[in-house]
Design a protein around this nucleic acid. Sequence first.
DNA 1: TTAGTGATATCC
DNA 2: GATATCACTAAA
Length: 172
Amino acid sequence: MNKKLSEHFFRRDCLEVAPELVGKILVRRLTDGTFIRERIAETEVYRGEEDKACHASKGKTERTKILYGESGMIYIYLCYGIHWLMNIVTGEKNNPQCVLIRAGEVHNGPAKFTKYMQIDGNFNNCKICGNPDIWIEDDGFRPEIKTASRVGIDFAGDYWKNIEWRFIADGK
DNA sequence: TTAGTGATATCC
DNA sequence: GATATCACTAAA
């Protein structure tokens, strides 16, 4: 029996949550009652104000205050005007960190994934646990995880650019 | 390689 | 109010 991830799962350091999230199944229930399921293939960590690539590094703002809030919250960010990126807030309150869902097993690319899942700004600031329309399941599958440096954050400087906070399912 | 896109942050 | 920035994709 597949188990829905509880808030407890997310109330940990994002560096623990991110690799465990890889291989889990994101389930989305549409308004017409159909379900979309896709296994998460890639996650990325954004951790703390000292992480230059993390939105919280610029301080607490109207947009980033979600990161400072409850774990298990969904943080949707509109990137470049057209792409919705999905993050899940982890850790305790006032500890701004989150896990970015970068790719699914089928739909690679963070914005392709959210588009397929029909996730948009309406899901911002929603809980991922106890939510009837979106949740994450564990079916017991444990893929090989490999790490890599994060992408698309040249602006953050060499140190943060090269740190291996990206977790990918090692598809054989 | 570059254009497109629009919310947010930052600068007047 | 105006401009600069950005965790991307698609088209070429």
